[in-house]
Design a protein around this nucleic acid. Structure first.
Lengths: 226, 226
DNA sequence: TAATTAATTTAGACAAATCTAAAAATATGT
DNA sequence: ACATATTTTTAGATTTGTCTAAATTAATTA
């Protein structure tokens, strides 16, 4: 009953299933996986059979899939590697947060326990990646955060930007341009009724900044003490 | 006339062809590639056809192969990536020189110009990897060295260990155990006629060390000023 | 140089991961 | 609840990189 080896492709499927599970939008369907991966539904069905044979997912035809403990662990370890590399690329090599995802997609499949133990230590066991996503530790445990979407901030509340819900390069570059980067503190000055947009005042600045509801939904914040 | 994309597998073939070319043992044959890669000769023939179609090698049936400029460039860039990563793994992460090869074999296929520019700068543009092999710069130029095998050292000559001709983990661990690591300086005290072994005195030590011809052939040294 | 041996290539097959088109199962709407 | 629409699966094909066995070419040796 050995750990059968898991291919890169299989790792990618598990990662996507994990992410769909995390979103908790009910059943994980063949089509949702197909759509997220840009792969034909028939190909997904095929792979689900293989992952099921390897006991990485449980799968009944037409009924959607779920991760087994072993499949979940594999997925979490891929995510751990991805986020550790992203941290490295930004903090050590000085790449920007909008250009590390693609590179980390490649690096996340490197196989070497020891490498990742050493990398983790070298980076001082970071808890979060450059987008504010938690980095699971070597046992697969995540740090819990109480981040909420900016769209649910209270008037006059003081918050800290701690994450993003949209990882696209375009969105990240928009945030960089407007100075809404991780760690930035702000106070909600106004909440517009008609379009749910905000006027915020960033700490250390003078001019208020308008933030649309679209943007606010994609920004994750935590309450700062006033 | 675009750069067609080169698969990981193709990169590995080009790297092996490059290394066989470097050894300059005459014609690069199907069987030498087969042997070095542990892949059946028939499979190699097949791949040579593909590489030839892509103009990465020139290949006439039964006549052996040689790299085209484009194939050589690809090979050199793979070697550059491999050696940069090895340097990183040893100097930054603290892995030992006998355990980095396998990991670098995976890392050498990561695609991102920018990553390697940044990594190179981060490592301060190293000229040599942990085994003393030269790291080509971003234009593919190698630093020239005048290393010779230790087996051709002169009696009473003073030398510096600067490289290895055998990269196996076993050999590297043997060197580590006996303290014959890169940068170590020594003087040749005796040269045995009957077995071509040496007695050397390492700088800063008191006891002479016996080095068999087998070992001496696999150690690369440069003359030190006396 | 002719015969034998060795190296190389060809032919045909296979596994992994994908595709398209068609069939089957499930879900939806009046 | 039945007809229709959607989702999922099956079937069969394709590409890449590999294999073994057989055929062909080149090299060696008697």
């Amino acid at each position: 009953m050995q750990n059968k080896s898991v291919s890169q492709t299989e790792e990618n499927y598990l990662k996507v299933i994990y992410k769909l599970d995390e979103k908790a939008e009910g059943k994980i369907s063949t089509s949702s996986i197909s759509e997220m991966m840009g792969i034909a539904p028939a190909s997904v069905t095929d792979m689900l059979g293989k992952l099921s044979d390897k006991k990485l997912i449980s799968y009944k035809k037409y009924q959607g899939v779920s991760l087994t403990p072993s499949g979940r662990k594999t997925a979490v370890m891929v995510i751990r590697k991805h986020r550790l590399w992203e941290h490295f690329l930004v903090e050590k090599l000085g790449l920007s947060w909008d250009e590390v995802h693609e590179i980390a997609e490649q690096l996340e499949h490197i196989r070497s326990e020891k490498l990742f133990d050493k990398l983790d230590a070298y980076l001082k066991f970071p808890k979060f990646d450059p987008h504010g996503d938690p980095i699971p530790d070597s046992n697969g445990n995540f740090t819990n955060t109480s981040a909420i979407p900016m769209s649910s901030c209270n008037l006059n509340g003081k918050y800290l930007i701690t994450g993003v819900a949209d990882h696209s390069a375009e969105f990240l570059r928009y945030l960089t341009r407007t100075g809404m980067i991780l760690g930035c503190q702000f106070t909600v000055k106004e909440k517009q009724e008609y379009d749910n947009s905000f006027l915020i005042l960033k700490q250390g600045t003078k001019n208020e900044l308008a933030v649309s509801n679209e943007i606010a939904k994609k920004l994750l914040v935590t309450k700062a003490r006033d």
